[in-house]
Simulated scan of single mutants.
Amino acid sequence: MTAILAVDSHAHVFMQHMPLTAARRYAPDFDARPAEYLDLLDMHGITHGVLVQPSFLGYDNSYLLSVLRQQPQRLRGVVMLEPDTSEAELAALAAGGVTGVRLNLVGQVLPDLSLPLWQAFLARIRALDWHLELHREAADLPALLAAAARSGCRVVVDHFGRPAPLQASADAGFAELLRHADAGRVWVKLSAAYRNASDSPDRDAPAARECARQLLAAFGPQRLVWGSDWPHTQHRHLADYGTSLAALADWVPDAAQRREILGATAAELFHIPQ
């Protein structure tokens, strides 16, 4: 029987002994092995996965790319790149299964995406039909989204848009993210609600549910994707693969909408044949 298409849009693989970038917030003390990840996909009925470059590995995407080469049908990749990356290198990455570029800006100085260097880079991303993945607290999203919008490239916002824990859906940056739904070039990942948490389970679960409700109302299932955030770095005490997948049913109660989020929406965004 043919498996129903379902995509995990956000996971990481790495080995703890790998050289780490100097500008890092975290260093892993465990391995996140590709074989373990693939076993989890099989166990939970997920047909495809998207590997996202971990911030602590910086611009050295070599390990991620090696894993993509081993699983070209099942896996896609989102890498970290400098904005002067050439068209030839981008084309080679696209041929290897890469479909996006990540800007993990948590704890970093914000780049000015309106500068000619960045606008030219975003234009090259757009030409490949890739997306720019933004990971930053919601308060700083408006300027980033406005500058990215000028290029016309697709933008994927990580982890609900990272609203402030004590504000959740009342965060002004989150409200601005909702307004970008009308432009039709922004997608949001329903993933890792624990990264927006206040450490109060009684408060955090309803907050994530309300954020998801507002995102679904604004973007619809056509521009929301789900990610496990495996292996849940710094939050392994709070989540595992099963609880991350179960959370989607809490955030999106309608089964047909969940199928669209996991299937057609993610497949189109990450260039997965249907």
Score class of each variant (00 low, 15 high):
Val252Phe: 13
Leu248Ser: 09
Pro253Ala: 03
Ala239Lys: 09
His232Pro: 00
Ala239Pro: 00
Ala267Gln: 02
Asp254Leu: 11
Glu268Met: 08
His237Cys: 08
Ala267Thr: 02
Ala246Glu: 07
Gln257Glu: 15
Gly263Cys: 06
Ile261Pro: 06
Trp251Asp: 14
Leu248Gly: 09
Glu260Asn: 09
His232Lys: 00
Ala266Met: 04
Ala267Leu: 02
Ala249Gln: 10
Leu262Pro: 00
Arg258Pro: 04
Ala246Thr: 04
Leu238Val: 08
Ala256Pro: 01
Arg259Asn: 12
His235Pro: 09
Gln257Ser: 15
Ala256Met: 08
Leu245Ile: 13
Ala256Trp: 04
Ala264Pro: 06
Asp250Glu: 15
His232Gly: 00
Gln234Trp: 10
Thr233Val: 14
Arg236Glu: 11
Ser244Glu: 12
Val252Met: 05
Thr233Tyr: 09
Leu245Ala: 12
Arg258Ile: 01
Ala256His: 10
Gly263Ser: 06
Leu262Asn: 01
Ala255Pro: 03
Ala249Arg: 12
His237Tyr: 11
Gly263Asp: 04
Ala255Glu: 13
Leu238Arg: 14
Gly242Asp: 11
Asp250Gln: 14
Trp251His: 14
Ala255Asp: 09
Ser244Met: 14
Ile261Met: 06
Ala264Val: 13
Ala255Val: 12
Gly242Gln: 13
Val252Ile: 09
Ala247Leu: 13
Ser244Ile: 03
Ala264Arg: 15
Thr265Gly: 01
Leu269Gln: 01
Trp251Asn: 07
Asp240Thr: 03
Gln234Tyr: 13
Leu262Asp: 00
Gly242Pro: 01
Arg236Met: 15
Ala246Lys: 05
Gln234Pro: 03
Ala246Ser: 10
Arg259Pro: 08
Ala255Met: 02
Val252Cys: 11
Ala267His: 02
Ala255Asn: 01
Gln257His: 14
Tyr241Ala: 02
Ala266Gly: 05
Ala256Asn: 09
Arg259Phe: 03
Glu268Gln: 15
Thr233Asn: 05
Gln257Cys: 14
Ala247Asn: 05
Thr233Cys: 09
Ala264Tyr: 09
Glu260Ile: 11
Ala266Leu: 04
Leu248His: 12
Gly242Tyr: 08
Thr233Leu: 08
Ala239Tyr: 05
Arg258Tyr: 02
Leu248Ala: 07
Leu245Trp: 12
Asp254Glu: 15
Leu245Val: 13
His235Glu: 07
Asp240Tyr: 11
Leu248Arg: 07
Leu245Glu: 03
Leu248Asn: 10
Ala247Trp: 10
Trp251Lys: 07
Asp254Ile: 04
Leu238Gln: 14
Thr233Lys: 02
Leu262Thr: 00
Arg258Phe: 03
Ala255Gly: 01
Thr243Phe: 09
Asp240Asn: 14
Leu269Thr: 00
His237Lys: 10
Leu238Ser: 06
Glu268Asn: 13
Gly263Trp: 04
Gln234Asp: 15
His237Ile: 07
Thr233Phe: 14
His235Gln: 12
Asp254Phe: 03
Ala246Pro: 01
Asp254Gly: 05
Ala249Leu: 00
Ala267Lys: 02
Ala239Cys: 08
Val252Thr: 05
Ala256Asp: 15
Glu260Thr: 15
Val252His: 11
Asp250Leu: 14
Leu269Cys: 01
Trp251Gly: 08
Ala255Phe: 04
Ala256Cys: 10
Ala247Thr: 05
Ala266Asp: 06
